[in-house]
Structures are given as C-alpha cells and as structure tokens.
Write a protein that binds this DNA or RNA. Sequence first.
DNA 1: AGAGTACTGATGGTCTGACCATCAAACAAT
DNA 2: ATTGTTTGATGGTCAGACCATCAGTACTCT
Lengths: 236, 236
Amino acid sequence: MEFKQIKNNKVYEQIIEQIRELIYEGELKKGDKLPSERQLKKDLGVSRASIREAFSALEMIGLIESRPGEGTFIRDSFDEDFFNPLSLILLLNDNVAEELLELRRVLEIDCVKLAAERATAAEIEEMQSYINDLLSSSGYEEESIKADKMFHYTIARASGNKVLLFFMRSISEAMDFHIKNTRTKLVSKEETMSKFARQHEQIFKSLKNHDPEKAAAEMRNHLDYVEKLINKEIEG
Amino acid sequence: MEFKQIKNNKVYEQIIEQIRELIYEGELKKGDKLPSERQLKKDLGVSRASIREAFSALEMIGLIESRPGEGTFIRDSFDEDFFNPLSLILLLNDNVAEELLELRRVLEIDCVKLAAERATAAEIEEMQSYINDLLSSSGYEEESIKADKMFHYTIARASGNKVLLFFMRSISEAMDFHIKNTRTKLVSKEETMSKFARQHEQIFKSLKNHDPEKAAAEMRNHLDYVEKLINKEIEG
DNA sequence: AGAGTACTGATGGTCTGACCATCAAACAAT
DNA sequence: ATTGTTTGATGGTCAGACCATCAGTACTCT
C-alpha cells in the first residue's frame, strides 16, 4: 500500500501558487498590473482577506508592490531598496557570524575578480570617490562606515552579476546585526581606518588596471586584516 | 529647505517590524511560541486581519509556522524543506540564467574546497552512494537527475556552512526553471551520463583524500564540461 | 487502576460586509 | 492653460462571525 501525503494547503498559499505559475509561464512580467483584489475575489471564489494574505506575503519578499488607489504590480527590479527577509532568517542561526564571514570572504574575492574584468569607467570613478571619502572622513564614524560599505558595494555591482550583488547585500545586511558593535569599535580607531584606506587603494589600483589576480590577492590581504581585527575584538 | 520622506507604513509592516526587533534583542528564539492572534489583537490594538497578513508574510519567508489548534511558532531551522522565495524573484530578471551559471561556478568551487577539508565519514559515504546511483541508473532520466543533484547537494552540505548551503539551494532551484528542458536533454544521452559519473568520481576521490586544490580543479573541469554542453544546447 | 471516550476551551483558517484614504481620470470653474 | 471638484475604483483596516483542529480535562466503562 502506498499513501500520498495529504497536504491541506491554505487558501492564500494556493493563490501564491497560481501567481507563481503565471510567472513561470511568462504571463506575468515585470511591471505588470495584477487584477484588483475585488476582481480576484470573484475569479478565485475566495474572500478578500485570503487574497490580502497572499499579497502581503508576496510583498514581503519583494515580488509585488501594492499602491493604494492604483493597484498591485509586479516589481520591476529586485535590486532596489527593499527589506531583505533573508537577513532575518539568518539571525536565528547559531554560529552564523562565522559562517557569514567565511562566505563573504569567498564571495568577495570572486567578486573582485569579476569586477576587475568588467568594471566600467563610471564605476571606477565611483570607487575612487569612496576612497577619498574614507580618507577625508577620519574621525567621523558614520561617514567612515558608509564610505567603507559603499566601496565594497560598488565592487559587487561592478561584477556585473546582479544575483551575486543580491547575495552580497544579504550577507552584508545580516552581518550588520551580528557584528554591529564590533564594527563600530573597529572603525573608531584612527589607525585602523587609515590602514583600511590604504588597502582599499591597493585593491582599487588592481581594479583600475583590470588585473583580476592581483585584485583578488589584495582583497585577500584586506579581508585577512579585517577578520583578524574582528576575531581579536570578539574574543576580547 | 529639507523635507523628510513621509512613510505611511502599513499596519502589518509595523507588526513585522516589532517581531523583528524582538528577534534582534533575543527575546524571541527558535521554537518559541508567539502570542495567539487574538491576544496580539488586544496587545497591539489592531485587527486580526492585519496580524494574519503579517503572519502569512513571515510564514512565506520561512520564519514562522502556524499550526491550527496549537499556535504560531518561530521555526527552528531554515534548512528544512520550505519554499524558497528567492528563486521566484530571480525568475523575473533577464539574463539571469547566465548569471546563475556564473555564480554557481564560483560558489561550487569554493564549496568543494571547504568540503574537502571538512567532510565527515558519513558524508563521504553518502556521496559514494550517489555516485553508484548515477552509474546504475543509466537510462532512467529521473533517477539520474536526482543522483546528480544529490551529489552536488551533499558537497554543499559537507562544506559545513549552512548559509552557503542555503545559497546553493536557492541557485539550484532557480536554475531548475531556467534550464529545465536543457537539463533533461543533457541527461537523456547515455554518453553524457557516463562522463558525468566519471567526473563525479574524480571529484569524489579528491574529496576523500581531503585535497582541496585537487578537488577544486576536478570540479572546475566538471563544470567546464557541463557549461559547454548547456551552451551548445541553448545555441542550437 | 487503566484505557478509552466525550466534552471543553483555545487556536488558527476563512468568510462577509462595512468604512476609510488614496489615486487617476473626467469634468467644471477660473 | 491652470486650478479646483467630483467620481469611481483601488488598497488598507476593522469588527464579527463560523468552522476545523488540537490539547487538556473530566468522564465512563471494563
């Protein structure tokens, strides 16, 4: 005898499933407008409440966007600034700080290789400005942190791989909470920041010369230093 | 003059925000039971509908789980089998197939390095079994695909980095849709499968000997071959 | 005493109908 | 041509109701 697992899907999950399939089949594309809640209520034979549960879930993951008075639309890009739920989930796991550090390391090194091959003139110019920011902002914690993050972020963007960029951002966001205090302590030291700035410059030079291996080596060096500091700070 | 952006957060978003903060502060941990919807309704002064919208969103991303008659709980692990919303978002982007391939390449190579260092005896044994499956399942498409996927999946798990495993799964799921048909065509050829099996064996040997660099090289070789086939299939 | 049964209360799941705020478009007034 | 006004559709929120499910509890029967 063989029994099939009985799955008592909730209504809102079935609604999501249908929308999902429409996306797979290409019937729903970026920017498309979904039917109104009241229309869907008729079409699907369910209550508006269930539809709204489905919509809020889809909005949470950044797939759709509801605008009062207008309607509900499929988002046209996922690289905009929306809350990334991944970081929330990562929060709940133990030892996740170490794993995040490890993963960031491998991703960032691959990232800088790709960036060295593909970075455009505009992106290189942008990186230069963040290096300048870091040099001139010594003493101002917030500005320093921002300049540091933006430098790395721009590298990720210059990799030309949006999925990679998305992953890097998820990791970065998650790390912000796990290592928040540590980060502030690190950057508050004048000496550390000037060393960061110099390392960034080294990475940047290799990027500018489109030398992937050199850039990777410099990034490795930079991350070694960062991780050493973090470990020292964590362990006391 | 400087104006601040007015943000009229929806009620359900504010509820999520509060839960989020409770997690950050450590007041909510894995397996914890949330207050009932009716209790939260009183505490927060909102309707049950809004609370349910918040909950369905949190359930979508796999953070919580609602069980009728019992209550709502924080999930105790995110590596179980829940629908991964990331793959849905990735579907909407153009050229994402190429980016996924590129990203999988770099991640999988780093993955196999870590796995070579850390794989346990049990995991190595598991890999061996999937290699045997692949050898013995020639001709049966479904079994071959499963054996192939499980081999790679086990490597990801053996890396010991759960976040990395999570990312690999997201990529794998997303790729399944973008390259679904292609995959089936690839595996249907007897010749291809036997070659896959041999390459898996090479990777496995290096893993067993805990030789990261060799394993990475073999993986690179394997992925080169796979990507060559995929490109050939896509272009005609 | 032990095992099974029935009741009860709490919980999530769903639906209905209502009211509000917002927006776009058509229209009216200047 | 610009500025208000109206109107209808839409999303946002709420209250109240009913159901199915589950965990105890009290009860019954042996």
